[in-house]
Design a protein around this nucleic acid. Structure first.
Length: 488
RNA sequence: GGUUCGUUGGCCGAGUGGCUAGGCACCGGUCUGCAAAACCGUAUACGGCGGUUCGAAUCCGCCACGAACCUCCA
């Protein structure tokens, strides 16, 4: 199966035509969250970006197996390769079991992603559920000679690996440069090389999460789980591996080394990296204090926010930039997106009610092709949105009775709008839910019909009273040529 | 210090060797009892300096500024 889809591959630093390894099947692995705290908006951007990518691959007709892991063990603070991991630390802080921490934040993560209307992955494996697979990989790396043991901890021998393969292939770095740039670690360091990283870490008696292994009780290193789970579910070599750009230099670099050492094959054909969400040009992160939570965004309860913004406004805001560009957050930009999004969705709703004519006086054909071309060019969602806005003008003109559209063109336009707005971009209307029940709608229609009568009788006082009071209650009333439209 | 990337009109943000990105805001107009919405139209741009070219915001060089990564982070 071949489309004209081009994907920017971090490995080659260029756009390459996407040709899956197995005909119409695509394997995609995305690094998921470490569930020791709430996801902030920056984290969400990556998952929303890959959601759109996943959706478009499905649109093209691929059978996609989308694997996104949950990191629930092995992720340490700092690079010390010792002590408790993030879960144990947080567990102590909150006086909970580590698995209570994992459960709490996993549930929260799913809740948020569901609010953002992302599709669940095909498989969502956890690190703790794949301890034996990880131990197996450590064994194989030891067998192939790229690992060594020091007092119950197993390290990956980066310098040895680099003699046979290029260690920094993903970020185009030479080992000498990396060695120069690496900070000198403390004197207690037992690693052979400064770049060596732990595959399996020996547990102390008080370590909360530990498992038996051929090297005694311990727990897996952070990078290992992705190598284990991706190969288990997608094979030794698979199509797409994604994640945030910040994972490129260390996590993904080590993942490549592990998989190569274990399976004697490059694990991934296309590496994709999403860029960061920034605030005032600086990366959003918890440590910088500029990382706010989705819930704070929805309610506006964060010092950086003037007010709240809806989930779909945020999703639309993100889709208006390319996934490989940094996206700068600001109230002004969010407000612009809010208006743009609502205009687009109003047009989409209007499209459903349009009447067809015998012929089209406007050009709407070719929209699907244009949108596909944009998406085929490394998932260029901002261009798709630009094309949708171009057609929006046509929709409004037909709605106003200034232009006409044929039955066939109308059907195609509806199909394309639905496909790209809902299926590909994953946007959905937010007004319907709040509009409430049928009876409620009919009551409002009744009021507005009374206002229409008053208008026809030039009773402006009554007409304005109804409009003003409804407006005060949060309704938006729009007069049309021979009636009205309203929303909350 | 090394690696990578960016600098686009009031704001956000695409694109790219010659052809309107788009959204929001602004201004003028049409429509309307008024308003809103919608439509039409105008305007404002590619960090600086050189070079290549018939032609560069787009390619090359230098400079300035900024960011990310090299240390846990989507």
């Amino acid at each position: 199966m071949e489309h004209n889809l081009y994907i920017y591959n971090t490995l080659s630093r260029s756009k390459e035509q996407f040709i899956p390894l197995h005909n119409d099947r695509v394997g995609m692995y995305v690094c998921g969250p470490t569930v020791y705290s709430d996801v902030h908006l920056g984290n969400c951007r990556t998952f929303i970006s890959f959601d759109v990518i996943y959706r478009y691959l499905i649109y093209l007709g691929y059978k996609v197996r989308y694997v996104r892991n949950i990191t629930d063990a092995g992720h340490l603070e700092g690079d010390r390769d010792e002590g408790d991991d993030k879960f144990a630390k947080k567990a102590k802080l909150e006086q909970l079991e580590p698995m209570e921490i994992v459960q709490k934040y996993t549930v929260g993560f799913h809740e948020i992603l569901s609010i953002f209307n992302t599709l669940p992955p095909s498989i969502e494996p956890t690190a703790t559920g794949h301890i034996s697979e990880q131990i197996e990989i450590v064994k194989q790396i030891l067998d192939s000679g790229y690992g060594y043991e020091k007092a119950g901890t197993i390290y990956f021998d980066v310098e040895k690996y680099n003699k046979d393969f290029q260690y920094g292939i993903l970020t185009n770095r030479k080992l000498e440069d990396l060695l120069e740039g690496t900070r000198e670690l403390g004197g207690q360091d037992e690693k052979k090389g400064r770049l060596d990283f732990a595959l399996w870490i020996k547990a102390k008696p008080e370590t909360l999460m530990q498992w038996p292994s051929p090297w005694g009780w311990g727990f897996p290193g952070w990078h290992l789980e992705c190598s284990a789970m991706s190969s288990k579910y997608l094979g030794k070599t698979f199509d797409i591996h994604g994640g945030g750009m910040d994972l490129q230099a260390t996590h993904h670099t080590n993942e490549i080394a592990q998989s190569q050492a274990c399976h004697h094959a490059a694990p991934v054909k296309y590496w994709m990296h999403t860029n960061m969400l920034t605030v005032n040009g600086v990366r959003m992160s918890k440590s910088a204090g500029n990382g706010f939570l989705p819930k704070e965004l929805f309610t506006g309860s964060h010092p950086l926010l003037e007010r709240g913004y809806s989930p779909m406004t945020v999703r639309f805001f993100m889709a208006q930039s390319h996934y490989r560009s940094t996206l700068d957050f600001s109230n002004e930009a969010l407000q612009a997106s809010e208006k743009g999004f609502s205009r687009l969705m109003e047009g989409y709703a209007r499209l459903q009610k349009l009447n067809a004519s015998a012929a089209s006086s406007i050009e709407t054909a070719g929209l699907r092709t244009k949108c596909e071309e944009a998406m085929n060019d490394d998932f260029n969602t901002p261009i798709v949105i630009a094309h949708l806005f171009d057609s929006l003008r046509a929709i409004n003109l037909v709605h106003d009775g200034k232009e006409t559209i044929s039955t066939a063109d109308l059907a195609e336009l509806k199909a394309v709008y639905s496909a790209f707005i809902e299926d590909v971009l994953g946007l959905k209307s937010e007004t319907e839910a709040s509009a409430g029940s049928e009876a409620f709608k009919k009551a409002i229609d009744l009021l507005l019909n009374m206002r229409l009568e008053a208008k026809q009788n030039k009773d402006w006082a009554t007409s304005d009273k109804i409009r003003n009071e409804l407006t005060a209650l949060g309704f938006e009333i729009k007069d049309t040529k021979d009636g009205f439209e309203w929303k909350i």
